[in-house]
């Protein structure tokens, strides 16, 4: 007979390593960052051992930071929207493909993730630069050159490129679970292909779209390499701002404050979105 205490301990022992990992690598640094954000800072003497709310007040009242936050949200939201617009049809086409094409295209879709983010982003900066391929092509066609590099457009383009797989894969997984005959049933009842997609197929992929857009939004809002390389020195996003506060200004508490505010804002938006969409989907899809 196994003694009772040890059976009681089994779940704890099994969950232990994972929990320790989580505490050590996520909760602890996060807690330290929160504490750091309340430390006072002096430019001549560094971090003080006194506590203050002044960083939070400074960030919330300064238009400079607010503008960067707004830009971060705007870029993340736009990237999510474009990823959904491209990724959902892409996932549908993928789910209707047969092997070997499906495997090949799946690889093509995941492709961007296999290349280092820095290399990929430099690639984009070469394409989008003032003498890049895009501008050369425009000039050949008789258009005036446009400034793309170091604009929000460049950031969104590069973000969409890397985020697309995070949208395609959850939606594809959701579509895989669908009975293909359900779509056929809609046709036999008189629905056109488009109506069947809109009324029958897409509503069932809602949960996939939800998780896809949450991943894309979260990753885009905290993206660092893409805005750092394609946004230039002026066009900052939240992550590059935090980097600058830490490594250029050496004002760690202010950097920590910004990081915490971004995290809180991100969490609020994602939870609200999740609640809104998931509640509706769960009610009907069960």
């Amino acid at each position: 007979m196994t003694p009772r205490p040890s059976t009681f301990a089994v779940p704890w022992l099994l969950a232990g390593p994972g929990a320790l990992f989580f505490v050590g690598l996520v909760l602890l640094p996060l807690a330290l960052t929160v504490i750091l954000s309340f430390h006072a800072y002096d430019y001549s003497t560094g971090i003080q051992n006194t506590f203050t709310l002044s960083h939070y007040v400074a960030v919330v009242t300064d238009g400079y930071y607010l503008e960067i936050f707004a830009r971060t949200l705007r870029i993340a939201a736009l990237t999510t929207l474009i990823c959904a617009a491209i990724g959902v049809p892409e996932a549908y086409i993928l789910s209707r493909m047969r092997d070997p094409w499906r495997s090949i295209f799946l690889l093509v879709i995941i492709g961007p993730l296999l290349v280092s983010v820095v290399v990929r982003t430099f690639g984009w900066s070469m394409l989008l630069g003032s003498q890049g391929l895009v501008n050369q092509a425009l000039q050949l066609l008789g258009f005036p050159p446009v400034r793309i590099l170091y604009t929000e457009t460049a950031i969104v383009v590069a973000l969409v490129h890397v985020m697309l797989p995070f949208m395609v894969i959850p939606v594809w997984t959701a579509l895989q679970k669908l009975d293909p005959m359900v779509e056929a049933a809609a046709w036999t009842l008189g629905a056109s292909h488009f109506t069947a997609l809109r009324r029958v197929v897409m509503p069932q992929a809602t949960l996939g779209m939800l998780s896809g857009s949450l991943i894309v939004f979260g990753l885009s809002a905290s993206a660092f390499a893409v805005p750092a390389l394609l946004g230039g020195r002026r066009l900052k996003m939240a992550a590059t701002l935090v980097y600058d506060e830490y490594l250029q200004e050496l004002n760690w508490p202010l950097g920590a404050t910004i990081a915490i505010i971004v995290l809180a804002a991100n969490l609020c938006i994602m939870l609200a979105y999740n609640r809104m969409v998931e509640a509706r989907a769960r009610r009907t899809l069960g």
């Binding site: 359900v182 049933a185 009842l189």
Partner: peptide, 28 residues
């Protein structure tokens, strides 16, 4: 198929899982 107007009952039933019984029946 959407022009033929035939009624089809599929082996898996192929009901629309996100619609109620009444909405399923009303779809056609």
């Amino acid at each position: 198929p959407n022009r033929r107007g035939l009624g089809v009952v599929f082996q898996s039933y192929a009901l629309f899982p996100h619609m109620t019984v009444a909405q399923n029946v009303a779809f056609g």
